[in-house]
Write a protein that binds this DNA or RNA. Structure first.
Length: 212
DNA sequence: CTCCCGATAT
DNA sequence: ATATCAGGAG
């Protein structure tokens, strides 16, 4: 594995040049709404999630609202994000657990967040970073793919990738770096058809699957 | 490891 | 027709 922090710093500099300003693309008003939006974002585009939550949050906004809503109603409202049965059940149970054990508030704590139904480390780190300004590496499909292509990790397990990246990047930059890889992954280092000829990372990248 | 699953790009 | 999208649970 590449543990060269200087090489990683070069990569980070290029990403900062490409994307001076980054933030989550999910729309939300409260930490709880961000939590719901992030659960919905599994295997779904942010664009589609925002389309759904725009209507959803007008009908249901708080943990109390979601915990009391009929499961079938919730399933219908989120249907177009895919995995709608799992997501609806998880969100409803998650809201119920927040009401019972956390006074209706989203805990600003990784260990507590991942105990909520439907919330893994990826979702927890998104919420911690964006809503509470607590640093965390967010390993989603883009971060996983690009970390491997750029040789920032030898691992495929998301948790191992998360810890590999934490070693190479200043803690204050964990969330920005995650967002940088996501922006970069959407525009250049795409899963299916990476834009290698147009990529500023070309001289630092040894990805052998290069094709235009 | 498999399953969950609709919308979109290729 | 098939791969992929800010994954998580059993």
């Amino acid at each position: 594995m590449n543990t060269d922090k200087k090489r990683t710093a070069r990569i980070r500099k290029i990403l900062r040049t490409l994307y001076p300003e980054v933030k989550t693309q999910l729309d939300y008003e409260t930490p709880f709404q961000l939590l719901v939006a992030t659960i919905l974002s599994a295997q779904c585009t942010d664009k589609q999630v925002n389309r759904v939550t725009a209507k959803l949050f007008k009908k249901l906004a708080t943990p109390n609202d979601f915990s009391k809503a009929p499961l079938e109603t919730l399933e219908t409202l989120i249907h177009s994000t895919g995995f709608y049965r799992n997501k609806a059940r998880n969100i409803k149970n998650c809201a119920g657990m927040l009401m019972e054990k956390h006074a209706g508030e989203v805990p600003a704590d990784l260990e507590k967040l991942v105990k909520l139904p439907g919330v893994g480390r990826k979702t927890a780190n998104v919420v911690l970073g964006a809503a509470f300004n607590i640093p965390g590496i967010v390993v989603d499909t883009h971060v996983s793919r690009i970390s491997q292509r750029l040789n920032l990790t030898d691992n495929k397990d998301p948790v191992k990738i998360e810890f590999d990246l934490m070693e190479q990047i200043p803690k204050k930059q964990w969330d920005v770096f995650s967002l940088h890889l996501i922006y970069f992954g959407r525009e250049f280092c795409k899963a299916r058809k990476p834009a290698c000829p147009d990529c500023l990372m070309n001289k630092l990248c040894t990805y052998t699957g290069k094709r235009s």
